[in-house]
């Protein structure tokens, strides 16, 4: 009797991949290569230093916008404090392309009913975008006027259903030394990640804004892509960039600059011409772009000119003490 021994490589007919599946796979592969190329292309462009922003659809919100002259896009996108990419004002524009912002997710935790990891799209999907032209006053005594595109912070936070114990909201920037060369620096004194926080009533104020774009397009990486905070009545460092965590807290969180130099930077950091930074005066600011021989000086306004909307938040507080 002939005993047929199947060699180890032999397969029964039942295991053969049907022709249709085989062909589909080929199609899939071609598609995959095409989409990989498409994905890589912006990366290649980025490596070349060109901006990779895309246009956004939004409505204008004149009720929240100043009609002051806007700071040109070039200045907004090339003059940044984003120490994750270096301490020079030009460093973020040079190196922020090393950060990948797609896909992006935000971890929500703490005192709320809907914690979890949200894909950026899911966090933003239910909301319409609006454009608000805000003043931005840096603690270093310069300022800009920037048309942001985004959603009110309050609408996003409400959907996460903070509970009654949530007295503060805390934010963190991405911490990834591989993508952020400033975090690799040997002599950086910042304890990464960058942390910021607001009191709940500040966060729910109508001016608090989550920006995803500026000048009608998605944020350039150096401006805090893909999602950042904008609190226009506070010094710029409160407006944390590239947010990866939102946490609701009962206690006031420690924030990065407060941890680093508590005598110079407080938790509140409200723009206040009466309270000087220990190293310089806050009475005036240079509105950028500034002139070469004659700086574009202007008087700094209380709460950066947003007194009407926010002064009530601090009634009875000694702002020289809670700076």
């Amino acid at each position: 009797m002939l005993i047929k021994r199947r060699p180890s490589w032999s397969l029964p007919e039942s295991e053969v991949t049907p022709r249709s599946v085989y062909l589909n796979r080929r199609k899939f592969m071609t598609g995959a290569i095409a989409s990989a190329a498409a994905l890589a292309a912006p990366g290649l462009l980025r490596a070349g230093g060109s901006p990779t922003t895309t246009p956004l659809t939004f409505r204008e919100a004149p009720e929240y916008s100043t009609d002051e002259k806007k700071t040109p896009f070039d200045a907004v996108a090339k003059y940044n404090n984003f120490y994750e990419f270096g301490t020079g004002k030009g460093d973020p524009a040079k190196y922020a392309h090393e950060m990948s912002v797609d896909p992006w997710s935000v971890e929500v935790d703490g005192e709320c009913a809907r914690p979890g990891r949200y894909a950026l799209e899911d966090l933003l999907k239910p909301h319409d975008y609006e454009e608000r032209i805000y003043r931005l006053r840096c603690v270093e005594a310069w300022s800009m006027v920037i048309p942001w595109v985004g959603v009110p912070l309050a609408t996003v936070l409400s959907r996460l259903e903070p509970n009654s114990r949530a007295k503060y909201v805390y934010f963190e920037t991405l911490h990834d030394p591989k993508q952020m060369r400033g975090q690799r620096s040997l002599f950086s004194t910042i304890d990464w990640p960058y942390r910021e926080g607001l009191r709940m009533d500040e966060a729910m104020n109508e001016l608090s804004f989550l920006a995803i774009g500026l000048y009608g397009e998605t944020l350039p990486n150096q401006n805090g892509a893909p999602i950042r905070l904008v609190v226009p009545w506070k010094y710029g460092f409160k407006s944390i960039k590239s947010i990866v965590r939102i946490r609701f807290l009962e206690e006031q969180p420690k924030t990065t600059w407060e941890l680093l130099a508590p005598s110079e930077y407080g938790f509140y950091a409200n723009v206040n011409p009466e309270v000087d930074h220990p190293r310089w005066s806050q009475k005036r600011e240079r509105r950028l772009p500034s002139g070469v021989l004659r700086p574009n000086w202007m008087e700094t306004r209380m709460f950066n000119g947003y007194e009407e909307q926010v002064a009530h938040l601090y009634k009875g507080m000694d702002l020289a003490k809670f700076y």
Binding site: D74, G90, S290, G291
Partner: peptide, 15 residues
């Protein structure tokens, strides 16, 4: 850099 406008938006600080 000043003449060619490469000094950035805050020339006073940079100079």
């Amino acid at each position: 850099d000043v003449v060619l406008g490469r000094i950035g938006p805050d020339p006073g600080q940079e100079i």
